[in-house]
């Protein structure tokens, strides 16, 4: 999910070193269908983090979000006043609307810490149906750098159509560094554009 490592990588690593850091986890039974928590996953996370992380949600970036080591391709961060999130990709070295550059954000979410409101993930994962499903998925995205928009465009449009957001239209409602550099400007932009996040429930 971080983009540096795939499911197949994990499986291969496990087969090479069965006692290594990559382990198959039985999910057990689902205890929180909305945010995506399973009892055995929680038990596993608790045990291997020595109690440092108690629970982990598959579908939420607000409640017990997933942790990462630091090699993720993108970071999603809440933009509180907009009711949405911004996503910065690693190649984007400029200041982002949340007031932190990618490097500062990476210091915040990396290193196995659980930081509600922030997750590290891959570019590909943005177009997944499971991407922050608990918070409303890609409907929440209010800002992305142009290069990221361009890179994920094709699948993003398909996914937006699937959600009934309109394909290219929705992409155009998302601000980028050419249209908004600060949180205030993002809010102004998405209000004008009629972005769905403006009428959604607050995230937290």
């Amino acid at each position: 999910m971080c983009g540096a490592y795939s499911w197949l990588d994990c499986r291969a690593a496990y087969e090479i070193t069965p006692s290594g850091p990559n382990q198959p986890i039985a999910k057990g039974s689902c205890i929180e269908p909305k945010i995506g928590q399973w009892d055995k996953i929680n038990a596993f996370v608790q045990q291997v983090s020595r109690g440092g992380v108690q629970r982990m949600s598959q579908y939420s970036m607000i409640t017990d979000p997933m942790t990462s080591c630091g090699c993720f391709e993108c970071i999603a961060a809440v933009l509180p006043s907009t009711g949405g999130i911004m996503i910065a990709n690693r190649e984007f070295a400029e200041m982002t609307p949340c007031g932190m550059k990618f490097s500062t954000l990476a210091g915040t979410v990396g290193g196995g810490q659980q930081t509600p409101g922030f997750i590290g993930h891959s570019k590909h994962y943005i177009n997944s149906r499971k991407f922050i499903a608990a918070e409303g998925g890609i409907r929440r995205i209010v800002w992305m750098p142009t290069m990221l928009k361009e890179e994920i465009k094709d699948n993003f449009i398909k996914r937006a159509q699937e959600l009934g957001l309109g394909g290219e239209e929705f992409l155009a409602k998302i601000a980028d560094e050419t249209t908004a550099a600060t949180e205030e400007q993002v809010l102004e932009f998405i209000t004008r554009a009629g972005h769905p996040a403006t009428s959604m429930e607050p995230m937290f």
Binding site: I62, A77, V78, L79, P80, S81, M95, P97, C98, G99, M100, T104, T108, Q114, T115, P116, G117, F118, T182, E183, E184, F204
Partner: peptide, 27 residues
């Protein structure tokens, strides 16, 4: 957590703390 701290801040993004946003300051 940073987000819990953020909720207690003024959320004005006044920048007087030296950070561009209250969220960055909270983190």
């Amino acid at each position: 957590t940073g987000l819990e701290i953020f909720k207690l801040l003024p959320k004005t993004n006044c920048k007087k703390c030296g950070m561009p946003t209250c969220l960055a300051f909270a983190m």
